[in-house]
Design a protein around this nucleic acid. Structure first.
Lengths: 111, 111
DNA sequence: TAGATAGTTAAGCAATTGCTTAAATCTCTG
DNA sequence: CAGAGATTTAAGCAATTGCTTAACTATCTA
């Protein structure tokens, strides 16, 4: 029951590389589906489906403009990811500190 | 072919909430499987499988200690996630700026 | 109004996921 | 050495995923 579907869950939504690439592309600004789909070797419906998943995760919003549909980036839910990862920053900092200490030490014993 | 399997891909690895919870738990320090599995209503093999996925994503490392196996957090691959999300920070900052500007404006027209 | 354009919906399919239970494996202890 | 403890491996299963093609819907344009 509680298995998170790709819709509505940000972490699931960004798990797919195509979806991340779409978001990356949207940083350039609002775009219609066809233009958005251009670099991908994938059918249009596939892209459309990805967009729907991004949409229901709140990462993207849609607006009709004549016969095209403009998609726009909404980065806000990514804060959830950012916050989660941020907890780990001190840990990898610690790791890197350990590494540099090790290198330092090695350097000293080189003399 | 290029569909990223949960193994080896960090974004896939952290897509699962149980896996994130395991990582969260490992922040408290190295732990054997049984202890790690304690809060989850899930069979031990299930946890073991999650640990393997985390392992092959490089997020966790394993060390034998008698008949138990100690798992230890390795946060370094999370930098990949951190870096990716960081690109979006200016965007949501912008969003929030717009919001606060809006609120400001509304506040002014309240007078 | 007939077509072309932009996009979605629907149906179907193979692969993957997340779990389960049962059977190993390895290691410690009496 | 026999059993208990800790964990993994194996096999199997239902649900989900990521895609495809074919058929629709809506909108613009000649």
């Amino acid at each position: 029951m509680s298995r998170p579907t790709a819709s509505a869950d940000v972490f699931q939504a960004i798990a797919d590389p195509t979806r991340r690439a779409i978001l990356d592309r949207l940083r350039a600004g609002e775009q219609p589906v066809k233009q958005l789909a251009e670099p991908f070797e994938m059918s249009l419906p596939a892209i459309s489906q990805h967009l729907q998943i991004l949409c229901s995760a709140g990462l993207v919003s849609q607006q009709k403009a004549g016969r095209q549909r403009l998609y726009r980036l909404n980065p806000v839910p990514l804060q959830q990811v950012s916050q989660w990862v941020a907890y780990y920053e001190p840990f990898w900092q610690q790791k890197l500190d350990a590494l540099s200490a090790y290198l330092e030490e090695n350097h000293e014993s080189d003399r």
